[in-house]
Design a protein around this nucleic acid. Structure first.
Lengths: 123, 123
DNA sequence: GTTCTGTGTTACTATACATATAACAATGCA
DNA sequence: TGCATTGTTATATGTATAGTAACACAGAAC
């Protein structure tokens, strides 16, 4: 799994990493039960600090996507709480849609964009 | 326009304010050409610091939703760059969809949720 | 014209978060 | 046992968030 960090982005490094791992899990590039590289390995691979990787893994744990264990490291273990996930999605989606609506993007275009993303990324 | 801030949220206050103003513009509760309350008025109304409001307004300016002028304050002036808006939307939507997909939310459910949001909030 | 009020802006401060370095503690293997 | 690898803790530093106080400009009131 290739991970690319944009150091000029205003998105925090640990968040960029978290996002790409989430995408990796969603696209089955990383499967449930598999172990993520150790914080040191991952850190060296992408040229950031071990601690920043640790933070990303912690966020993933808090989001119920991995479990962390001193022996095995971070294992992809999805804890599905669909109701909470839907609520969360709704709140964040509202903000995205509102901004888009201001910019003249229609409901139809949003639906098309979503299908496009599912198709392109094989979600 | 009623604005509510959750001081226990992990979302920054200025971002919560920005979000609610974006929703206000999207739902035409605030129309193009109208002026937002002055930073002091808004700050007092919702019980936060003037400077935090200023930050929210600055973000809105950077996003091309308002223009700021020492005389008139913050005026809703939408600068439509649809191509850029679509690109931005796509990037953020991908992350949302990936997370949702991990949690077992289907493409169909996403489409339904979007229609639900448009209906409920009259976007 | 002068004063007063209201506007955003700037300077400065305190706190929290993001990121990094170094040392630590626990586990597993040779 | 001794070594290597794991996540963790302690500490430091730069950046972002949020706040207080003082400023400078524009317009209204007088």
């Amino acid at each position: 799994m290739v991970i690319e960090i944009d150091f000029n982005s205003d998105v925090a490094i640990y968040m960029q990493l978290r996002n790409q791992i989430v995408i990796g899990i969603a696209t089955a590039e990383i499967r449930e039960g598999e172990t993520l590289p150790s914080v040191r390995q991952m850190a060296e691979k992408i040229g950031i600090n071990m601690h920043t990787v640790n933070k990303a893994y912690s966020v993933l744990r808090q989001e119920g996507l991995v479990t962390i264990d001193r022996r095995r490291g971070a294992v992809v273990t999805i804890d599905v709480d669909k109701i909470q996930a839907l609520e969360e999605l709704k709140g964040q989606m509202l903000i995205l849609l509102a901004k888009s609506s201001c910019k003249g993007i229609t409901r139809k275009e949003v639906h098309q964009l979503i299908d496009e993303i599912y198709r392109e990324r094989q979600l």
